[in-house]
């Protein structure tokens, strides 16, 4: 027999609310340079980063996520009971099972929502937004929390000149829900596993345990190769996302790329030929690269600073380990 017809959901979706959590420890370059024999000037020239934030032991992945999610749900004007999906993008929840999404949902007091984690590294947030939008349009959920959260300080080798100064911690959350108007454009996403070595965990957990001198399998990165891919290939993906949405750079108000490195942001903006009126997120200077959390954190900063407002058209693009990438045009909540 054939099954009864599947339920369909909303025709359009939008981001209804945004919330973030910036951890309390502000770490200026001066506290990073000694271990990598560097200077504040060198770090700023190479990355545009002036400081980053590290989480305290109390500021766990779960704690930061719950704080950001509460703000997002409140700003969306919803009750917690209405949220029926939680998607968490992270690579730094160091308990491999269960998914932290279930613990976050429980702490928020949600009523048995679908809750799971996704692993798409720095590209995680835009993957989560695309997934949530499709869940709602497909009728599988109505209001979905998408959380990007990282404690990269846990997996950083603070003596590695290639990564120590780049990464930071934080959380950002949005509520995706049904909308009368399209507020989330088609996603352009993909991956290139041939370049999987460029950003990765240094070694497998089994190798760590078998080692005579076990240590955290830190994050490693081949910066120049990543720069080349991100600055030039991702500008093409960004344009594809605009094309798929049926708009051009002239229609954009805001550009929120993953906050990987100021030099990547500058090179992308140049190569995309963004007009002067487009506000470009540069939260990396104060926050470092927070992987899956960087886009919501950067968007929040633009809104705080009055450079972006509700109703603006924003291009989001996230890219990172995998290599994996995802981009979409959204309306600022």
């Amino acid at each position: 027999m054939s099954l009864p017809p599947t339920a369909t959901g909303a025709q359009h979706t939008a981001i209804l609310g945004l919330g973030v959590y910036r951890p309390s420890l502000v770490v200026p370059n001066s506290e990073i340079i000694e271990a990598i024999d560097s200077s504040d000037e060198w770090i700023q020239q190479r990355s545009g980063i002036k400081q980053r934030r590290f989480a305290t032991p109390e500021e766990t992945v779960q704690m930061m996520s719950v704080a950001a999610a509460r703000t997002a749900v409140e700003r969306a004007g919803l009750d917690m009971a209405q949220v029926d999906g939680v998607v968490v993008a992270t690579v730094t929840h160091l308990m491999q099972t269960p998914a932290v999404a279930t613990l976050i949902a429980h702490e928020l007091g949600l009523d048995r929502p679908a809750a799971f984690d996704i692993s798409a590294a720095c590209a995680g947030f835009c993957h989560g937004v695309a997934l949530a939008s499709d869940m709602i349009r497909g009728g599988s959920a109505k209001y979905v929390l998408v959380i990007g959260v990282e404690r990269l300080s846990d997996i950083l080798d603070l003596t590695d000149r290639g990564t120590a100064f780049i990464f930071g911690d934080g959380a950002g959350a949005v509520v995706v829900g049904p909308s009368d108007e399209p507020g989330i454009g088609p996603v352009v996403w993909g991956s290139d596993g041939e370049q999987s070595d460029l950003i990765r965990q240094r070694e497998d957990w089994r190798d760590v345990i078998a080692s005579d001198n076990p240590r955290m399998p830190h994050l490693t990165m081949q910066g120049n190769a990543v720069f080349r891919w991100a600055a030039f290939e991702m500008a093409k993906v960004a344009h594809e996302a605009l094309d798929r949405t049926g708009i051009t750079v002239d229609d954009l108000d805001v550009f929120v790329p993953h906050q990987a490195n100021m030099r990547i942001i500058d090179a992308m903006a140049r190569s995309m030929k963004l007009p002067d009126h487009v506000a470009i997120a540069r939260d990396i200077a104060e926050q470092g690269n927070t992987s899956a959390a960087s886009i919501p954190l950067a968007l929040d900063r633009l809104i705080e600073d009055g450079e972006a407002k509700s109703g603006d058209t924003a291009l989001l693009i996230a890219f990172g380990a995998g290599l994996a990438y995802a981009a979409q045009v959204v309306t600022v909540p």
Binding site: R46, G223, N224, A225, R228, A231, R263
Partner: peptide, 26 residues
Amino acid sequence: VDSLSMVEIVVAAEEKFGVRIPDDEV
């Protein structure tokens, strides 16, 4: 010229001169 600018120069040169300059060659 720092290493990131070098990457940008290489990519611009590839476009300008119609050649491929692999990372290993840089």
